[in-house]
Simulated scan of single mutants.
Amino acid sequence: MSVNNPEKVTRQREERRSQILHASIGIFANKGLAAAKISDIAEAAGISHGHVYNYYSSKEELFVSLVKMLQERYGRVCEEARGREGNARDKLLWHARKIGEDENALNGMHVVLHAETIAGISAEEKREIPRRAVENLQPIIAIVKQGQEEGTFREGRPEELAVLYFALLNGVSGARRRGLGAVASPDEEQLVGLLCK
């Protein structure tokens, strides 16, 4: 790394941080914060154990950064779904498929869902997790309202239907993640169909 090019150094540092974060998703999803080891994450990232500490001062800092990244990424997918052309049903189908096809998204939903209950997370961060979740729900609420205006989606408070959709998506994702998909794995059509009249 050339110290003469600070932009390159910054970009490479951010790329390495992202590499570590992405490698940690499956580790934290499968082991949780307490049982996950920095050495596991380093191995998954293809770097040395000590090198992780050049980017994150602790496992807890890495975990908090991961939760924030996952929520921001999920928020972008929700916004993209809202901004798509077409009817509300097609927008939610696209959203459910986008999440369902991405192993990191499935693992990420699991990580975020349990983040608020972890002892190693500060009270301030525990308040931020639900705040970001509510923010991420707004595009889904807008899609539900659109579907109600189109006469496709059930009547009811759009906020409640959006939460129901999210809970169903999270439940299906969790079942697939745990290998229960072989028993029963509702597809996206069934999932979105539950909101339809």
Rank of each mutant, 00 (worst) to 15 (best):
M1L: 10
M1Y: 14
V3M: 15
N5L: 13
E7T: 11
E7N: 14
V9D: 00
Q12M: 13
Q12Y: 09
R13N: 01
E15P: 00
R16L: 03
S18Y: 10
Q19V: 14
L21T: 01
L21M: 08
I27M: 08
A29S: 08
N30Q: 09
G32H: 08
G32K: 11
L33W: 12
A34R: 12
A36E: 06
I38L: 05
S39R: 15
D40V: 15
I41Q: 04
E43Y: 14
A45M: 03
H49N: 09
G50E: 08
G50A: 09
V52G: 02
N54T: 03
Y56R: 04
Y56F: 11
S57A: 09
S58C: 06
K59Q: 02
K59S: 01
E61I: 12
F63G: 02
L66Q: 01
M69E: 06
E72C: 07
R76K: 13
C78M: 15
C78S: 11
E79Y: 10
E80A: 13
A81Y: 03
A81D: 01
R84D: 02
E85F: 06
E85H: 14
N87E: 10
K91A: 00
L93W: 04
L93H: 06
L93G: 06
H95A: 07
R97W: 11
R97L: 05
K98F: 12
K98C: 15
K98H: 10
G100P: 09
A105Y: 06
L106S: 06
L106E: 02
N107V: 08
V111M: 03
V111Q: 05
V112D: 04
H114E: 12
E116T: 13
E116A: 12
I118T: 14
I118E: 07
I118C: 11
I118H: 12
G120K: 10
G120Q: 07
I121Q: 04
S122F: 06
E124W: 15
E128A: 13
A133C: 07
V134R: 09
E135Q: 14
E135H: 13
I141L: 02
I141D: 00
A142D: 05
I143F: 03
I143A: 02
I143S: 00
Q146G: 12
G147E: 00
Q148F: 01
Q148G: 01
E149S: 09
E150R: 12
T152P: 09
T152R: 13
T152L: 13
F153W: 03
R154W: 02
E155T: 14
G156S: 05
G156R: 03
P158D: 00
E159A: 06
E160H: 08
E160D: 08
E160P: 06
E160W: 07
V163L: 04
V163G: 01
Y165P: 00
N170R: 07
G174K: 02
R176S: 04
A182Y: 11
A184H: 15
S185R: 11
E188W: 04
Q190P: 09
L191C: 04
C196W: 03
